[in-house]
């Protein structure tokens, strides 16, 4: 990481009719960084990515992506960026090799045949190269998509929920690969719903209803919200939840299996709120707020997070 900006945009805005989908979002992503983009469904993450790579025209905003003007030079950005769509979008009626070859031709890759051959080898799909992409399982499709996005050696990788529907092992391998690539200088902007993935990013941002609510490292984001969290375990937690929610100072309760996190902005008020329940078999102790507590807190604070 050399501190140079890969993405530096201000006031990016997109409306679909009357609906503000992305609302004046500023974002600064440094070269070689893995930047996580989080937010509920319909919060504008995909739209933001599409604006960056020229798939959607921004209504407002300015800035640069890989040094090119984000509004007027999308052709140049497309050449140097790889975009992996949320839904598998390669040609299912082409074979694995044909897909890679097509993409390589599209980007006018030098030594095309050799590049494709190496890509197949890295994927571990050399033997299955003639198999149709449509016959691959979810995990393999995702690996193929990643390989295809990388074939022209982009400087920026935009990943839209790359691990949705992928098993935990494949997910971990995928992230190892992303870290390996970032180590070689590739900048990665990735959207995700998973907290463990968010924590594997160098920095992250949280977007809700088109607005950027917070950004920074995981520690920054947690610290900034000044959330106090208590963990409680004991009998009949659902009943306890119902009673706690009535109390002032308790902003949210999140169940974690046999225990529950109770959080609030105001540490004193929260302590008073839980005081009556500290006896009878309940075991309380204060914990560090986790990313998930913070995000649920942010989501609750912003009005109506459902996509409309």
């Amino acid at each position: 990481m050399n501190g140079e900006s890969a993405i530096d945009v201000r006031g990016m805005t997109k409306r679909f009719g009357d609906r503000m989908v992305v609302d004046h979002v500023d974002l600064d992503v440094r070269a070689g960084e893995i930047f996580g983009f989080l937010g509920p469904n319909g919060s504008g993450k995909t739209t933001f990515l599409r604006m960056l790579c020229g798939l959607l025209r921004a209504d407002e905003g300015r800035g640069t992506c890989l040094g090119h003007d984000v509004i007027n030079e999308s052709e140049a950005i497309k050449r140097e960026a790889g975009y992996m769509t949320q839904r598998f979008s390669f040609w299912e009626d082409l074979s694995i090799e044909e897909n890679l070859d097509f993409v390589a031709r599209m980007y006018d890759v030098k030594n095309r045949r050799q590049t494709v051959r190496e890509s197949l080898k890295q994927l571990g799909l050399t033997e299955r190269k003639d198999q149709l992409a449509g016959h691959l399982s979810g995990g393999w499709k995702q690996r193929l998509a990643l390989a295809a996005c990388l074939i022209h050696k982009p400087r920026l990788l935009l990943l839209d929920e790359p691990t949705a529907g992928v098993d935990p092992k494949a997910r971990r391998d995928f992230w190892d690969e992303i870290h390996h690539l970032a180590g070689e200088g590739l900048t990665v902007l990735v959207t995700t719903h998973y907290m463990d993935e968010a924590e594997r990013c160098h920095r992250l941002a949280y977007i809700s209803r088109g607005k950027l609510l917070t950004h920074g490292t995981v520690a920054d984001v947690i610290a900034r919200e000044r959330l106090t969290t208590w963990a409680v375990s004991g009998p009949d937690l659902p009943n306890l939840t119902a009673q706690l929610r009535e109390r002032p100072g308790v902003e949210q309760t999140v169940a974690f299996g046999n225990s529950m996190h109770v959080s609030g902005d105001d540490a004193v008020a929260l302590k008073q709120a839980i005081a009556p329940f500290r006896a009878n078999n309940y075991e309380w102790h204060q914990v560090e707020s986790e990313l998930e507590d913070v995000f649920i807190h942010l989501m609750d604070k912003s009005p109506d997070t459902s996509s409309s």
Binding site: G54, L55, E75, K78, R79, Y83, S89, F90, M106, Y107
Partner: peptide, 13 residues
């Protein structure tokens, strides 16, 4: 319909 258009458009064509 198959969603491949998004991919095609993200390439410099």
């Amino acid at each position: 319909e198959r969603g491949t258009m998004e991919n095609l458009l993200s390439m410099p064509t």
